[in-house]
């Protein structure tokens, strides 16, 4: 069991898909302007990764090696379409906000990466845990970045103003650069800096 638990906890810190494997950076820059979008995106990725990892793991002995990428793509694409349809049905506003980015989960390197690296060679339960763990690791960074970007960039959290008006009267201004994607990259960089100074074993030997 402890071996399985590692599958869940490892991607949160030691083997985080964004900060350690440096996968899925594009979406981390694109949809972290607002916390709400980031949360929905994270949940969508959890659903897609868990489901496609399970399906590919079930099919892993049936998939011919030479066309495995195509099969993986078909599986991921179907899951993404499912998630997209569910969002449109139950959270239309958010789905409109995220628009193309849900569809682009299919191009998220983390999804394909885990299918290739893990689901093709492991059992169903372990693949499920691995998918969920990595998606949570991805989501954690996404939400953290979005938290700072929305707070400092527009003074809101989840669309509600949290920086009091008295601050603005004293001359405080929202940081417009937080809303631009370069600052998202820098925020991810700062998170990596903090993580590495806390977690020494991540530092490569020179």
């Amino acid at each position: 069991m402890s071996k399985n638990k590692v599958l869940l906890t490892d991607p949160l810190d030691d083997n985080n898909p964004i900060t350690v494997q440096v996968l899925g950076i594009c979406s981390a820059l694109a949809i972290t302007v607002q916390l709400k979008a980031a949360i929905v995106m994270s949940l969508s990725v959890v659903a897609v990764m868990a489901a496609s990892n399970v399906i590919v793991s079930i099919l892993r002995n049936l998939i011919p090696n030479r066309i495995r990428i195509i099969v993986q793509l078909v599986v991921v694409a179907s899951m993404v379409v499912l998630v997209d349809e569910v969002l449109r049905a139950y959270a239309y506003d958010v789905s409109k906000e995220l628009s193309i980015f849900i569809g682009l989960i299919i191009t998220n390197c983390i999804v394909m990466g885990r299918l290739e690296a893990f689901a093709l060679g492991n059992g169903v339960w372990r693949s499920f845990l691995d998918g969920v763990g990595n998606a949570f690791g991805y989501g954690a960074i996404l939400i953290l970045v979005a938290f700072f970007r929305e707070l400092l960039g527009s003074g809101n959290l989840l669309g509600v103003q949290v920086i009091p008006d008295s601050f603005y009267e004293m001359g405080y201004e929202n940081n417009g650069m937080m809303l631009l994607s370069p600052m998202a990259l820098i925020t991810v960089g700062l998170i990596i800096w903090v993580q590495r100074s806390r977690n020494r074993k991540l530092i490569e030997k020179a």
Binding site: E173, N175, G176
Partner: peptide, 8 residues
Amino acid sequence: FAFFAYPT
């Protein structure tokens, strides 16, 4: 940084 963060 100031230019992009506080354009006004």
